[in-house]
Design a protein around this nucleic acid. Structure first.
Lengths: 195, 195, 195, 195
DNA sequence: TATGAATGAGAGTTCATTCAT
DNA sequence: TATGAATGAACTCTCATTCAT
């Protein structure tokens, strides 16, 4: 099997990491390309040998975020007991989105996606996959009687993601930081889904 | 009773409305003060007679958003049946945050709050009030046996807000638009809180 | 009669003059907006209060050049003897286009007009008026027997302008500078047009 | 006879052709070396193995243009009837400079020559040869009574070139395109030179 | 020869804000 | 209050060229 995937230039990774750091520190729009190249330790012009422009960096970040999500998608789609899968997902995804860097990058990407079709495309694709996988798990659980079937699986899937991500977002702001609810959210959801 | 509230100059309202429109259309950082004054139909310099600067406009918007929230706080704090109060809140707050202009402004304010203490202050105060009111309602319901007492009221309050607001945010992006879950969310929560 | 022509801000004139000087010294593309504002003694940003951008300055220059041409157009269109008019025009237009600043600006504008529709528009309009006026003079002369009618007036008009302007252009380059032909060109043309 | 002319690397020709195409499409200054190498299908660095830099390409083009002119010079200098030679020249040179690629490159080279001594040198030499040859033809015609001797041959030579080249330049711009005067220019000049 | 990553100066333009009128 | 000219730092991006491979 030929490996026809062009390897990523190490410099591109360095730029990426520098950009992520900057975006987290200052936000996407407040970060200048000069900030990125300074942090990456390269010259200004060289950035444009690796990325078409500033937005292309954010697109690349969004794509990588998408790849990280595929771990969740895969786990949600395996053959384990739906209840186990759901518990695992809620626990782990809550932790994932509660990491400030993930929540922060996520909201930067989201707000940028609202104006940029390119980013919206990548962002939306990632999200749709996750919703589908979670809804599939809920459907399976409904069929096997593990979960109540009174709710639309797709709507509940959305709701769960909304809750987890909304929580991650809230944790960003100083005022309510510390009120982590991850010990509550799992039992709460399972309670609601009790047949 | 003397009216010691200084009346707001009508021009200030016009600027505010122009700014909101611009922020919704282009985002806070992509909006220039020139965009705002053009939309408001005033001169560039005159904006600075009414606001100290661009950020002051956003602070003012955040304050007004806060005033709108006080309606929800008041209703959550009255003496009606906690279950009725909760149902009413979920229904109406879901609708409120599902309005694109509210969700969009909210996320702009939130991301800005992450870097600007002034905005974080206003934003955080508003949110804390809402959480407290909602938690109070849940506590009351737990005491009177309407709700299960197995969950920490404050954590559940956060979770509910996270869910509703996360949903509003998600509806902004094109891909998953239309998957409104407001008919699901109320019963789902009540199910989970069943004693 | 109301004067509804908005007066031109003096700063705009200063910028214009600075730009002309720079364009003559270094050429349009080699001139940076920073060169212009430095020569004009204003700040960089202020230039954009008076012109939409660099190209708009060139368009403005082209328009002013067009106004200067209208003197020639008027003179060519009066009621004097066509022969006198032609002689006057050849003599004076030759001198006009032989001025390095006019020739140089002309060729900068011409080459820019080849790529920019805006400039092509202004430039083309000016030139068409001049050709029409000159052709009109030749036609009159042909009708009254002052000039031979064997040539198409419009073609001869073009040719005369080509000659005069081609001459101005040539004088720019160092090698053949000094070979002014203005004493030759008038008699030469009149000789050719002898009935 | 030894062939001491170093053969030109085929790649150099390819670069040259790519450059000419680009210069015609976008103009010299608007063309980047990246445009040229992309069109030539070679790498960026490799261009510098064949040319010292961007300007060297234009110099090379100017030299080749000069070689093309030598055909006209030779024909003007042969022993045929001066009137025949002149007619032939006017006809054929008019066609040559009316080709957009020649006129366009010519004006690009000319304007560049105004700032760059290297290019001015090549450009000026070519032109001086042409003027000398044409003046020689006119002188011969004056001596043999074919042409009027009332005009300075050198001045008339300049004038003829100015006319032909000015015409080629004018044809470039859209507005007056189509007003070709080549059927007029030959008889016009001969009329003027009638003894 | 050939490659393309690397350079950093410079490009045109926009920015939020100030200030004299 | 209202105006818009003035400021200059900052913006993203392109440039011709060099150089290690």
């Amino acid at each position: 099997m030929p490996n026809n995937v062009k390897p990523i230039h190490p410099r591109k990774i360095e730029i990426l990491e520098a950009a992520v750091t900057c975006f987290l520190e200052k936000g996407y729009h407040q970060t200048g390309v000069r900030d990125i190249v300074a942090k990456a330790g390269i010259s200004l012009g060289n950035l444009y040998n690796h990325f078409k422009g500033k937005e292309a960096i954010l697109v690349f970040i969004a794509e990588i975020e998408g790849q990280e999500l595929s771990g969740f998608v895969n786990r949600l789609s395996d053959n384990a007991d739906p209840r186990i899968r759901l518990e695992w997902f809620v626990q782990n995804y809550a932790e994932y989105v509660a990491l400030p860097e993930n929540a922060l990058l996520g909201v930067e990407i989201l707000t940028e996606a609202l104006r940029s079709p390119t980013i919206a495309d990548v962002f939306g694709r990632n999200r749709d996959q996750l919703i589908a996988a979670l809804a599939g798990c809920l459907t399976k659980g409904g069929e096997s009687g593990v979960f109540s079937s009174q709710f639309n699986p797709s709507a509940v899937a959305c709701m769960i993601l909304d809750t987890l991500e909304g929580q991650g977002l809230r944790n960003l702001s100083l005022s309510s930081r510390g009120k982590h609810v991850k010990d509550t959210i799992g039992p709460f959801i399972l309670n609601a889904l009790k047949p």
